[in-house]
């Protein structure tokens, strides 16, 4: 049996920074690799520790189950702890996510639309069926 496809995680706010760099005298630059914090992990930290939500609320926000959220959150904390203790650089990128505010504009009929299904990508404009569209921030 093929493994179940992973459910996409909803992220409400893209991170402001793309990472953090350690500094200090005793830092060994050569043999310390970077930590890749996934954007969904960043989001879990943001919701739980910055917005001070409980795991149930955060899970709702990210559109995942509560146990999944806890798993993401735990992974995120482990990574951050590793970075802090071992002086690793944190790079925030990747992950199976979609942005809440994701909007597209059709190049043919000029309408804007979003993709609430998210599980499968968008193939065509919901109005004129054109396959030419671009990713935009938000309709003006």
């Amino acid at each position: 049996m093929a493994p179940r496809p992973c459910r996409l995680r909803k992220v409400s706010k893209p991170p402001l920074i793309s990472g953090l760099k350690p500094y200090g005298d005793k830092l060994k630059k050569e043999n310390v690799s970077s930590i890749f914090l996934f954007i969904e992990e960043y989001e879990a930290i943001r919701l739980c520790d910055h917005e001070i939500m409980n795991h149930k609320q955060a899970a709702n926000m990210m559109d995942v189950s509560r146990p999944t959220l806890t798993r993401i959150y735990t992974a995120a904390r482990r990574k951050i702890a590793d970075a802090l203790v071992n002086g690793r650089q944190i790079i925030i990128e990747g992950g199976k996510i979609y942005f809440d505010s994701e909007w597209y504009q059709c190049s043919n009929c000029c309408c804007y639309f979003n993709n609430p299904g998210k599980m499968d990508g968008i193939k065509e404009c919901p109005l004129c069926r054109s396959s030419e569209f671009t990713n935009v921030q938000q309709p003006e």
């Binding site: 009929c109 309408c111 639309f113 609430p116």
Partner: peptide, 24 residues
Amino acid sequence: FDSLKIQMIVIKEPEKKIIEIIDM
């Protein structure tokens, strides 16, 4: 709408007629 998973489509042409949209 997002939480209800209903797709939103924005048309920035006020003079568009309902029948034209249905045709599309």
